[in-house]
């Protein structure tokens, strides 16, 4: 009786953590797809790395109980906690060093009817810029 109750508590706590973690992981992936430019996408990826990963690993630790498996899962959580901000900073730093400009100011997702002009407009600009530079250099 008592053991069964403990098992139910274990199951429900683990389920809460796993469902929450999976939600944050999926939200991070959706954000990486939806957000408009590179710097804002980094934020969504960071969300996956922090709360999503930690919650999933916590759920698994609850399942594993007191054992070597849970120690190893704790080690994974610790490693991700330390390395993911460093990797994020390295990616952003490299992009900043390569003079990738962030889009600043307010942004709203385009209404479906407006999608084509918004998407087509930046492309010729991007192609035109290098040409202009080469012309200046040639002169």
């Amino acid at each position: 009786m008592n053991a069964e109750l403990l098992q139910w508590i274990q199951f429900s706590v683990s389920a809460i953590f796993l469902v929450g973690g999976v939600f944050f992981v999926i939200a991070g992936a959706v954000g990486v797809l939806r957000l408009p430019d590179f710097y804002t996408r980094m934020h969504a990826a960071g969300m996956t790395d922090t709360l999503g990963a930690e919650m999933i690993l916590l759920g698994l630790i609850v399942q594993a109980g007191l054992s070597q498996t849970s120690l190893k899962l704790t080690l994974i959580a610790f490693l991700l906690f330390l390395t993911s901000p460093t990797a994020t900073h390295a990616v952003v730093g490299a992009a900043h060093h390569a003079k990738l400009k962030p889009k600043l100011g307010k942004y709203r997702a385009p209404v479906p009817g407006e999608v084509p002009p918004v998407k087509i407009a930046p492309k010729p600009k991007l192609k035109a810029k290098p040409k202009a530079r080469t012309k200046k250099k040639a002169k």
């Binding site: 944050f24 939200a27 959706v30 954000g31 939806r34 957000l35 430019d37 710097y39 804002t40 969504a44 969300m47 962030p102 889009k103 600043l104 100011g105 307010k106 942004y107 709203r108 997702a109 209404v111």
Partner: peptide, 13 residues
Amino acid sequence: VKAVLSPNMEISP
């Protein structure tokens, strides 16, 4: 999460 999943995604980088 609120900013990313809302349909018109109002963000201000």
